[in-house]
Amino acid sequence: MQRIDSHQHFWIYDKVKDAWITDDMKIIQRSLLPKDLHPVLQENGINGCVAVQASQSEEETNFLLQLSKENDFIKGVVGWVDLKSETVENRLIHFSKEKKLKGFRHILQGEDVEAYLSNKQFLNGISLLDKYGFTYDILVYHHQLKLVDNFVKSFPYQRFVIDHLAKPDIKNHAIGDWEKEIKQIAKNENVSCKISGMVTEADWQNWKEKDFSPYIDIVVENFGIDRLLFGSDWPVCLLGITYQKWISVLEKYFAGFSSTEKEKFFSGNAEKFYGL
């Protein structure tokens, strides 16, 4: 069975640019590149991956695109472009020539999300993405998710994906408000969801596999198997889990699903969503 990791990152570590990598994250406080990931993918039977931006610049986009040209296993790139720019359409035309550039993302979780999602220039940028075949990854925390529903409703033909289940508070086993909002978002058929990044929202050192199941249950029930994507969030996941162990958690969860359903989750949905 083909397997595609829909969400991972690369960076050349810089203490200023990567200030979010704090001293309690020593394991990832270093440069992490394709040479570090490729053997891990091979060991775990992963055929390819999608590299996702981790900083807000076109330099980041070009960096990931160059890595994708040098490494065939990088099947797609989710980059960054200034969607608020007056010249955004020219930049989208420029980037549309890059075959491996599949979409864009902004680290919304660090913004005033309400203001950002109502910004006219940003909304104009979003309105142009589908014209050039680009997707959009939505990165927010669980408490910001309620602001996303009206936003995605405004663009019914745009392909959106929620990163990391919108980061529910797994550490404190809180589900209620997140479940309410995720159910509402899932009603929008143009929105998919990545099952990724869960361990870093749990207790890094003391999580148990059963901590994840209630959250996965909810996204499976509401998004359905056709709109869920497997992702590792490597190397950030290393803060609390090995790549192999994360694969094992998901293999156990989906063990009772049909081979067709498993193929969709582990590869087919990512291939379809990103046009890999």
Rank of each mutant, 00 (worst) to 15 (best):
M1S: 14
R3D: 02
S6Q: 08
H9L: 09
W11A: 07
K15S: 15
V16E: 15
V16Y: 13
I21Q: 11
T22H: 12
T22I: 12
T22F: 07
D23T: 11
D23N: 15
D24C: 03
D24A: 01
M25C: 12
M25I: 06
K26H: 04
I27H: 11
Q29W: 06
R30P: 04
S31P: 02
L32N: 10
P34A: 09
P39C: 09
V40E: 13
V40F: 03
E43R: 15
G45E: 14
G45P: 02
C49Y: 07
Q56Y: 10
E59F: 07
T61K: 09
T61Q: 10
N62F: 06
F63N: 02
L65C: 06
S68G: 04
K69I: 00
K75V: 01
W80Q: 05
V81T: 15
S85D: 15
S85E: 12
K97I: 00
K100E: 03
K102T: 00
G103R: 12
G103E: 11
L108V: 11
Q109D: 13
E114M: 03
F122L: 04
L123T: 00
L123Y: 06
N124S: 12
L129R: 07
L129K: 06
D130V: 00
Y132Q: 02
Y132R: 02
G133P: 05
F134Q: 05
Y136N: 08
L139H: 11
L139W: 07
V140D: 05
Y141V: 01
H143V: 00
L145M: 06
N150R: 08
R159S: 09
F160C: 04
V161T: 12
D163M: 03
D163E: 15
L165I: 14
L165F: 13
L165N: 04
P168E: 10
I170K: 11
I175G: 05
I175D: 07
W178V: 08
W178F: 11
E179I: 01
E179S: 13
E181Q: 14
I182C: 05
K183I: 09
K187M: 12
K187F: 01
N188Y: 03
N188Q: 15
E189T: 14
E189F: 05
N190A: 13
V191D: 07
G197V: 10
D203C: 08
W204M: 08
W204E: 06
Q205V: 12
D211E: 08
F212S: 01
Y215M: 03
D217N: 14
D217K: 10
I218E: 12
I218R: 10
V219L: 07
E221M: 05
G224L: 11
R227P: 01
L229R: 04
V236M: 08
G240M: 09
Q244C: 10
K245A: 11
K245E: 15
S248Y: 15
S248K: 15
V249K: 07
E251W: 09
E251S: 14
F257I: 03
T260N: 15
E261Y: 08
K262D: 02
K262R: 15
K264E: 06
S267K: 06
S267E: 08
A270Q: 08
A270I: 07
E271W: 02
E271A: 13
K272L: 11
K272D: 13
F273E: 03
